[in-house]
Design a protein around this nucleic acid. Structure first.
Lengths: 369, 369
DNA sequence: AGTGTTGATTAAAACGTTTGAACATCTTGG
DNA sequence: CCAAGATGTTCAAACGTTTTAATCAACACT
């Protein structure tokens, strides 16, 4: 199996697999595979191995460029030290900070997060979920996917004892532990901000119907308005179309801004579903000759990168994304540790507290004119 | 090893590993592991298996929620069907489209890209590179990392016959096949654009010294200016500080914009190192009361999302990122197929052609005033 | 009855690890 | 001189697959 032949007078090991194995090292320095394994994996037994032997084996390993085969090791140890992270659309700037939160938590646990990007495609999502199962991820974190058709895949996760957590959406109704922002509170924060600035005529862009976040955000906003005795002109309530492309939020915002103006109704502020939409609104207003914030205040939701680097910066409701990711990671690690495949009944839910971030896109009514 | 006990009068298999295996299925329907394997993996031999048997096995597999163990399979087949994708900083919007290009190419090859994000940390980068090696990725694509200290890890890749390709940087000097944008041409395009708009007094923000892209971009721009007989005021040439945080481009651009104004020199356009820097410049100018593009034109480089959704949109030099990713993927797939671990000597390099994208941030000199 | 042929299934080895048990070889004390 | 530890090393089985070669039954043809 290990052929050796001479090249330039020197013995060169030639492997089929192309990878250096324990056997290669064992042969090269005259010990058994067991000993080599014990030394290199720093098993407890390695204390009984002569220091000189240890030295020799280590030296040879690094000389040959040995790296243990995670497949063989995982097979034997029955632990993959891997958790799957399945993002529905990684190009959504929303995902990154969550991912970072997950990652930092995983590192200390010695786990490798396998990140997969479904690119908004249901089929891809399913096929990745399958791969995650096949690669024996010990748990799965799903980021903000609003599809979950493949109930049998979920059932398969259960059959195979793989704990799962979703972040960015409340799916406790389906029995999945969830971490999500308190959208209602977020919507309320945004509306309160506008009202405090003195705005009374407020246009609203709601999210697409299929987006689970849309409803509660609007509810939160509406209640605050109602409490203050303000009514929102129903002619000024718009809704993003169901998403098609990745930047449909931006496009939608831009065209709805024009639609707002076309109604002829008066408004001094726009409450947008999310940051991209808000940026779209700014664009739309700008193309119609209106300036933000002088002529109209705009606020978004999420606090993603483009919102902070635009000028004016977009006032927004920040989600503590990294923290949410980190909590998700802690949950799955705990689930793995405790060996509990099934979530608590009812499954846990964590509501992250949103936070108002004031930037250049908001101004008091008549303040800067 | 497979214990069974009764629950509610029904036989329930109870596995240690928590995962359904071929053996479970074999027992459950009275065939051997071999047969089950042959059927479920759709090996050529499966044609000889009685149709009824196939049916039965498949049914049982899906009922139990079986998914083949990728570890065991890869161990046996000696193929992981995985390639490692190592991003130096995934939060750079630059990475995503590249990743998408890679992904779409990988899918058809049936490969899984394992995406890892080094978060700009050298140590993380190395540790992920090691993991990639351990997980027996059949090849590695590195995205735009400007560190490559760990020469011994690279040497290990060679020892283990793992082909590697880098995208976003020319590292052929280190013997690594590379895919990068033609920065010189890009710089030239940007400068030509400004000159065609009539600008003559142009401020420049160069990238940090450690950024390999910086020099050629500036060279391309400089040559074009020289050809047209224009000299750039050396007082108006600035340089971003070495990066510390992720948005140092933005911060740097903003503060340098103020530095430009502080020189008292006249300028009507700014050529920024990249899009985030350009956005920073816009912010800086705006805070000093200047409007873009009426008072000053700004162009960036890369064409990342924030540049397109800001208002005004940032004129920029687009890199064909998805295409670059796709080429990288094709290269590694080819390398895997041909079994050539070592790259050609000299290693191949692909120069992607940049493209000017004109947006609202550029205006002809005196055009809109 | 012997010889193929075909069709359906399986036994067994291998992939590269890890690990509990076993095996030598030395000390040491009785 | 043997029992009883230490000390250092190895055997062999196992993890869940895939795959080659083998088995076995049934059936057709000389």
């Amino acid at each position: 199996m290990l052929l050796t032949f001479r090249v330039g007078g020197k013995q060169v090991p030639q492997r089929k697999s192309g990878h250096v194995t324990l056997l290669d090292i064992a042969r090269a320095c005259g010990y058994s595979v067991s000993t080599v394994s014990i030394v290199l994996s720093e098993a407890p037994l390695s204390q009984n191995v002569a220091a000189s032997t240890r030295e020799q084996i280590r030296a040879m390993a690094s000389q040959l460029g040995y790296h243990p085969d995670a497949y063989a090791r995982s097979l034997r140890r029955r632990r993959s030290q891997t958790i799957g992270v399945l993002a529905f659309d990684l190009s959504d700037p929303f995902c990154l900070p969550i991912m970072r939160g997950i990652q930092s938590e995983m590192q200390r646990g010695g786990y490798l997060p396998m990140l997969m990007d479904a690119q908004t495609h249901r089929k891809l999502f399913d096929s990745y979920l399958k791969m995650v199962l096949e690669r024996r991820a010990e748990a799965v974190i799903v980021i903000a996917s609003w599809i979950f058709e493949e109930a049998n895949l979920l059932a398969d996760m259960e059959k195979n004892n793989v704990p799962i957590v979703i972040v960015g959406r409340d799916l406790t109704s389906r029995g999945i532990p969830s971490i999500a922002v308190d959208n209602e509170e977020g919507g309320a924060l945004a509306m309160r901000h506008l009202l405090e600035l003195g705005h009374r005529d407020i246009a609203v862009v709601r999210g697409p119907v299929e987006m689970f976040d849309s409803e509660p955000r609007w509810n939160g906003a509406r209640h605050v308005a109602a409490q203050m005795g303000i009514t929102i002109d129903s002619q000024l309530i718009f809704q993003l179309p169901d998403l098609v492309g990745p930047d449909s939020g931006f496009e939608g915002g831009a065209s709805l801004a024009k639609a707002m103006l076309a109604t002829g109704r008066k408004f001094s502020a726009v409450l947008a579903f999310d940051d991209l939409t808000a940026l779209g609104v700014v664009r739309g207003l700008s193309e119609s000759g209106l300036r933000v914030p002088q002529d109209c205040t705009v606020v978004g939701f999420d606090d993603v990168l483009p919102a902070s680097v635009a000028t004016p910066g977009i006032s927004t409701i920040r989600q503590p994304l990294a923290e949410m990711g980190s909590i998700a990671a802690q949950w799955v690690l705990k689930a793995i540790e405790s060996g509990q495949s099934a979530p608590a009944n009812p499954p846990e839910v964590h509501w992250a507290q949103p936070q108002l971030v004031i930037r250049g896109s908001s101004a008091p009514l008549h303040g800067t004119e």
